[in-house]
């Protein structure tokens, strides 16, 4: 049975997001691939052919588009597919060490799947620069601000069979008065009275950090 055979209403719902023209139909390519990958962890050749038939194009086109994007996999990934952002902002927060630690602890390299279902991948900036370093689980969500201790506990939980909920910390929030706060509750910035003097305090570029 083909993947979408018993999911006609899902297919219809996806197609309905786009115009009914052949061009519009083709727009469903990415959402359909995403459905398959979410279910199987990767997209196989028969799946590509299935998607091609659904949207009226060729397997070549599907493969061409699929291979363009880095999210889609053509090889099976583990039950816990962990992606580490390795771009500069995360690197400045130690993502290289995080990566090394992860691959050593799990004893896995990109492209492999461990017996206990781990696979790893280095990826580029995931928009978590303010909460770096980070891990992404199975295209499902992020673990942010991943310290060594947190990394270890995440691995332990996954090894024990279930991945903790992914999180979504908001680093800076605004209160009802319009004051900006850190998630920890620490107020940032200043009000009109205090701000200006604050920023004119001598803080020369060479004076280094405040910590």
């Amino acid at each position: 049975m083909l993947y979408f055979d018993d999911k006609q209403s899902l297919v219809a719902e996806i197609l309905a997001r786009y115009p009914s023209s052949p061009q519009g139909k083709r727009s469903a390519l990415m959402p359909l691939l995403r459905e398959i990958q979410n279910a199987h962890g990767f997209v196989s050749e028969p799946h590509m052919a299935e998607v091609a038939a659904l949207i009226g194009t060729t397997a070549t086109e599907v493969r061409s588009v699929l291979s363009f994007y880095s999210t889609y996999h053509t090889m099976p990934t583990g039950r816990f597919h962990l992606q580490v952002c390795s771009t500069l902002m995360c690197a400045l927060a130690g993502s290289d060490e995080l990566w090394d630690h992860l691959t050593e602890t799990l004893d896995v390299q990109p492209g492999e799947v461990t017996a206990d279902g781990f696979s790893v991948q280095r990826v580029e900036c995931l928009g978590s620069c303010g909460t770096a370093p980070m891990l992404q689980l199975n295209d499902e969500g992020y673990y942010e601000g991943v310290t060594r201790a947190r990394c270890d506990s995440l691995i332990a939980a996954m090894r024990a069979g279930s991945a903790p909920e992914t999180d979504h910390p908001v680093p800076v929030v605004v209160d009802a008065d319009g004051r900006q706060f850190l998630a920890t509750g620490e107020a940032v910035g200043a009000n009109t009275d205090s701000l200006y003097p604050l920023s004119t305090k001598p803080k020369s570029a060479s004076s280094g950090g405040s910590v």
Binding site: M89, C129, G130, P171, E186, S199, S210
Partner: peptide
């Protein structure tokens, strides 16, 4: 982001100086 005490998103008027953002809001470099 990077080596700063309070990385995050801050809403400020355009024209705010880097100094204000980095020190007043983000708490200064680490």
């Amino acid at each position: 982001s990077g080596a700063v005490l309070r990385p995050g998103v801050y809403e400020l008027p355009l024209g705010t100086t880097f100094r204000e953002l980095i020190y007043d809001w983000a708490g200064g470099p680490t």
